[in-house]
Amino acid sequence: MKKFMQLSLLTLALSPVLLTSELANASSMPQSVSPANANVYIISPADGATVPSTFTVTFGLKDMGVAPAGIEKKHTGHHHLLIDKNTLPAFDMPMGGDVKHFGGGQTQTTLTLPKGKHTLQLIMGDHHHIPHKPAVVSKKITITVE
C-alpha cells in the first residue's frame, strides 16, 4: 500500500511536467500548407442578419477540400467555428475546446444561442486540428438572435 501511495504521489507531482512537455511537443508539430487562394466563409446567415434562437450556419470553402480529422490529404482540412471570440486560436497548436470542431467533415451546423448580438467566424484545421499555413480564416460576421 505504501509503494502504491508513493507511486500515486509521484504521478501527481509529475503530471504538470508531462502536460507541459506534451504542449511543447504539440507546438512543434508542423503546419499543413494551404493553397494560395484558399478561402473559407459563412454562406448563411448573412452578416447583420437577425435569426431565431435556433438557426443553421452553412459553411463555404473555395480552392480547398474538406476531409475529416485524422485524414491527412494535401490541401484539405475541416471546419472550426468560433462563437463570440475576440482573438483567433494559436496557429501552431491544435485548436482546443474553446472552438466548435467539425472533425467529421461537416459543412453546416445548427446552433442555439441566447438573445442578443453574437459573432461567428470559421477557421480551417488540418488532420491534427492545427490551422494551416497560411491560416484559412473567414471574415467575422455579426448576427442578432431575437
Score class of each variant (00 low, 15 high):
23 L>E: 13
31 Q>L: 00
109 T>Q: 07
121 Q>S: 10
40 V>A: 11
95 M>S: 09
44 S>P: 08
43 I>G: 02
29 M>F: 03
106 Q>I: 09
119 T>N: 08
58 T>Y: 01
103 G>A: 06
115 K>D: 12
68 P>T: 14
52 P>L: 12
106 Q>M: 11
64 M>T: 05
91 F>C: 00
109 T>E: 14
69 A>L: 10
93 M>P: 00
39 N>K: 12
58 T>K: 14
84 D>H: 09
16 P>C: 07
107 T>N: 12
23 L>G: 06
117 K>P: 02
71 I>P: 01
67 A>F: 01
43 I>A: 07
108 Q>H: 11
30 P>R: 04
76 T>C: 05
41 Y>P: 03
27 S>K: 05
113 L>V: 06
16 P>N: 07
74 K>P: 11
95 M>W: 05
72 E>F: 03
115 K>L: 06
106 Q>T: 08
75 H>P: 03
60 G>N: 13
51 V>Q: 07
15 S>C: 12
61 L>C: 13
100 K>R: 14
63 D>Y: 14
62 K>T: 11
22 E>F: 06
111 L>M: 08
125 G>R: 05
71 I>E: 07
104 G>V: 00
22 E>T: 03
114 P>F: 01
37 N>D: 15
33 V>A: 07
74 K>G: 08
23 L>W: 10
99 V>W: 12
33 V>G: 01
114 P>E: 07
61 L>P: 15
98 D>S: 15
43 I>N: 05
113 L>E: 02
49 A>D: 14
38 A>I: 05
117 K>H: 08
37 N>A: 13
90 A>N: 08
69 A>C: 03
87 T>W: 06
41 Y>T: 03
39 N>V: 07
76 T>F: 05
31 Q>K: 00
29 M>A: 09
31 Q>V: 00
103 G>R: 11
19 L>V: 15
68 P>A: 14
45 P>H: 10
63 D>H: 15
14 L>G: 02
34 S>I: 01
38 A>F: 00
122 L>M: 03
103 G>P: 06
82 L>T: 01
22 E>K: 09
71 I>A: 04
36 A>F: 01
86 N>S: 13
118 H>Q: 09
100 K>Y: 13
116 G>D: 04
116 G>K: 03
107 T>L: 03
44 S>E: 12
91 F>I: 02
109 T>R: 07
65 G>D: 15
46 A>G: 06
122 L>W: 00
28 S>R: 13
83 I>P: 06
35 P>I: 04
72 E>S: 09
18 L>I: 11
17 V>D: 10
89 P>Q: 02
123 I>W: 02
92 D>A: 12
34 S>R: 00
